[in-house]
Amino acid sequence: MNILLATIRRDLLQHVRRPADIVNPLVFFLIVISLFPLGIGPSAGTFNEIAAGVIWVAVLLATLLSIDVMFKSDYEDGALEQMVLSKQPLILVVLGKLIAQWLVSGLLMTLMSPLFALMFFVSSDGILAIAMALLLGTPTMVLLGSIGAALTLGLKNGGVLIAILVLPLYIPVLILGTAMVDAAVGGSSYTGHMLWLGALLLVTIGLAPIATQASIRISLSQ
């Protein structure tokens, strides 16, 4: 367990000292969301309808952007080789990297989302639902994305390939997430959606790190 905490600490330290990889996707997220109201024009009704969709799509694209570089620098400078040849289980190291990655991408976007929801005139019920949905949905997206990132490590331009590999897997999360917000805004119960998002998260926590560590071994063996 020690190695899990050490990995989280190591990755957070790097993100703090070299913030570019993390700040770029967040700025992208900010720009996409703040441009929408300008493009659509000031009508509270439309905003309300599209809020959930816009925020979710922006989060999804920003996650894809940030996941692309998740293992890249460790692959290029040889740190990944050392992780594989370690006495510690690789899966704990991978899990630590995933947690650090989520803290600086998914969690930050979740925390920013209520502010944007306000900007789109979403009701207070809806704001809570957006935050809850992102809290459950973003870790799932980071976990799924890491499989694609690990598989495309050896390729020069893996970014597009990651999107093709991973986007289909994101669709259930996207549909459930936006449906949950719509239900909340419409005043009906959204427990069902929340439970489904939670179930998806649990399944990916169980399976994605295994797939990611196997993909890392495959990518290094080329």
Binding site: N2, I3, A6, R10, L13, Q14, R17, R18, S73, E76, D77, G78, A79, E81, Q82, M83, V84, L85, S86, K87, Q88, V93
Partner: peptide, 29 residues
């Protein structure tokens, strides 16, 4: 696994020498 030193140096630019070695020692338990 053996102690492997390859062409790629495997130390992180954003960490100090001490932090790098601490992490590499952690990896070898």
């Amino acid at each position: 696994y053996p102690l492997y030193i390859g062409h790629k140096v495997g130390v992180k630019d954003a960490m100090s020498a001490r932090e790098n070695l601490m992490w590499l020692a952690d990896l070898q338990a």
